[in-house]
Amino acid sequence: NQESVVAAVLIPINTALTVGMMTTRVVSPTGAPAEDIPRLISMQVNQVVPMGTTLMPDMVKGYAP
């Protein structure tokens, strides 16, 4: 099972992602793949992402898996 990126903390809208904001988990439906964490760092979210929420590609500005 592939791990997806999950918010480790509450991420406010327009916040640039840091490694400490993200964790990985096997979830369904799958979100952004765990191996993309290095690409996701410094990208901004376009909505509030509550802690424990799977990071879906459409939540991150300019990100395409």
Results as ranks from 00 to 15, higher is better:
Y63W: 06
T30L: 15
L10V: 07
P33G: 02
L10M: 15
V49D: 02
Y63P: 04
A7E: 03
T24L: 09
A7G: 00
V19R: 15
A7D: 00
G20R: 12
R39V: 12
A8Y: 05
T15R: 04
I11G: 01
V45Q: 00
P12Q: 10
P38K: 09
A7L: 07
M56T: 08
M59S: 04
M43F: 06
Q2Y: 13
A34F: 05
P38F: 10
V6C: 08
L17K: 06
A16G: 08
A7V: 08
Q44C: 12
V49G: 04
V5K: 00
V49K: 02
Q47A: 07
T23M: 13
A34C: 09
A32T: 10
D36Q: 02
P65C: 10
S28T: 14
M51H: 04
V60P: 05
V45K: 00
P33K: 06
V6Q: 00
A64Q: 15
V9G: 01
P29R: 05
M43Q: 05
L17H: 05
A34G: 09
P50R: 11
G31R: 03
E3P: 11
V6F: 00
N46S: 09
K61F: 13
Q44G: 03
T54I: 06
P29C: 08
G31T: 00
N1G: 14
R39T: 10
L40S: 02
I11V: 03
T54C: 05
P50M: 09
N46C: 10
P12V: 09
M56N: 04
S42W: 08
N46K: 10
L10T: 15
N46Q: 06
L40P: 01
M56S: 05
V26H: 12
T30K: 15
P57T: 05
E35S: 15
I37F: 01
V9Q: 11
A64K: 15
P12S: 08
D36K: 01
V6H: 01
L17Q: 06
I13V: 13
T24M: 07
M59I: 04
L10H: 15
P50T: 09
T53Q: 11
M21R: 03
Q44D: 04
R25A: 13
P29F: 06
P29L: 03
M56H: 07
M21I: 07
I11A: 01
